[in-house]
Write a protein that binds this DNA or RNA. Structure first.
Lengths: 222, 222
DNA sequence: ATAAAAGTGTAACAACTGTTACACTTTAAA
DNA sequence: TTTAAAGTGTAACAGTTGTTACACTTTTAT
């Protein structure tokens, strides 16, 4: 296995470990690798350990009861997968997890996480903070879904991607994935996009999205 | 103040306290009361302490960018309000909180919560579990919102309320609140409801909802 | 008890989205 | 490099929801 950069991990960076190898031998855990484009966790699977993505990236998506997909997020290593569900009464994964490239996943038993939390206050704080941030992400997701029009969703999403002085960004989703993320049909999204391009509100060049008229983009929210 | 029944609180029941009064004096906290139908926390307010609802009930709702409401949940004492946000990077309340009756709220500083977690492993486990359960609630909320038709949302919601042998239940929301909960317009919800009543799928008597045809209700999900 | 407020039922029409289909372009694999 | 697969643009039409309006019923407050 390759060396894991724990300092970049949102919950492990406080573990001041001089030698990762030693640390990983102390920690009772197992490591597995998976190839690209593989469904590695099914919605509903029992979540009895912490799954840490140590190499590669994955996407998560929820299957709704009518059978359609709802894209949730794209996760890059190092980051834990669904850490919040480890302690819930109904500890099942709420999403499907699919690899986007070759990945490596470390499985850390629940007991070990408990031990780390007890012995390491900083680890506990980080774990709490990370779960808090995940909750914030979910509420933001709720907010996006509750916007009724596709152009409104687009405006919310686009305004989130850009900064004060840079009004372009590179989209990391294709149209199909963006439609799933919004929970709408792909041709409907394409229609809204092309209308906003025709109206001179945005421009699209391959994966490069640029906002041309901030004022009118904001008006789409209303 | 009235005596608080901590044993019913999802995060405090492990605090094996013989005398609540003593415990509450040890704990650095302040208590406030509010009348019925008052907006007591605004979306965006800083969340630098744990707010514990000790008496009464409140509702939470999110204001979306287009100005419309999205009902989130109804909370009854004793339960903490938005405990997950206490530790997040952006520690702001994600919702408006409005009282539904006279309420009493205990404000416990973040430091005190940290202290409790350090000294009391059971408290920590409960805190984690409660936050996990809240996350699960939010993902369920996401799933409901991602269902595209109102009848589909209704089916999802109704099937969740009933049990195997009891196919009636008492609705604790009026139509306006249910419409906000679904993120749809009130007359649209009323239309879907009356159509389902006419088709003999459900019956409604004041606040009493009964499912008459389980099979056809499930079909609405598709 | 009575008035005011809140909640419900319903209708017509506009607006938006979903569905399906197909041509075309781009990307990835053999 | 060639071929297959994936992604994109677009159109017509059906279906669902939103908006607005108003009468009616129920609940709440005085």
């Amino acid at each position: 296995m390759e060396n894991v950069d724990l300092s970049a991990c949102p919950i492990c960076s406080s573990l001041n470990i001089e030698d990762n190898e030693d640390f990983l031998q102390d920690l009772k855990c197992s490591i597995k690798t998976y190839p690209k484009n593989e469904l590695i966790i099914h919605q509903g699977d029992v979540c009895d350990a912490l799954y840490m993505l140590t190499q590669g990236s994955v996407k998560t998506e929820m299957i709704t009861e009518n059978g359609s997909l709802l894209g949730i997020e794209i996760i890059k290593a190092p980051r834990p997968l669904a850490p919040a569900f480890l302690f819930s009464d109904n500890n099942h994964f709420p999403v499907d997890v699919t690899t986007l490239e070759d990945v490596e996943i470390m499985r850390i038993p629940k007991d070990e996480i408990m031990r780390l939390m007890m012995t390491n206050p900083d680890f506990m704080k980080q774990f709490l903070k990370h779960n808090s941030n995940r909750t914030q992400f979910l509420t933001n997701r709720l907010q996006l879904l509750s916007i009724k029009t596709i152009k409104g969703k687009l405006a919310h999403f686009l305004l989130e991607q850009i900064t004060a002085d840079e009004k372009s960004f590179t989209m990391n989703r294709n149209q199909t994935e963006l439609a799933d993320f919004f929970g709408v049909a792909r041709p409907s999204l394409a229609r809204s996009l092309s209308e906003m391009v025709q109206q001179g509100i945005i421009s699209i060049n391959k994966k490069e999205y640029t906002i041309l008229d901030m004022k009118r983009l904001r008006e789409q929210l209303v």
